[in-house]
Amino acid sequence: MKKHIIITYVLLIVLTIVSGLTYSVADNNIPSIILLLSALKFIGVSFYFMDLKKAHIFWKSAVICYLTILLIVVLII
């Protein structure tokens, strides 16, 4: 259990540093990549730090739905 939290933490830090490094890259796809990395971090925190992976499917789906809708709306605008 503790091992899962440590692995999640290391992955979250790596994803944050990767997001920060994309700052200087000039590419049209960068905003989408940054948002995707952010969505992965969001899932990491909610499922592993907040223990949502143990919760009822309703709560897991609600978080995934919220994230998907937000990402789609932001990318469509």
Partner: peptide, 24 residues
């Protein structure tokens, strides 16, 4: 300055990690 943003993200994630360990 995105460095502030990255540093703050790392700080908050570390804080969240410590909180998760504390609950455990």
């Amino acid at each position: 300055n995105p460095v502030y943003g990255v540093i703050n993200t790392i700080i908050l994630l570390t804080s969240g990690f410590c909180m998760a360990i504390s609950v455990l």
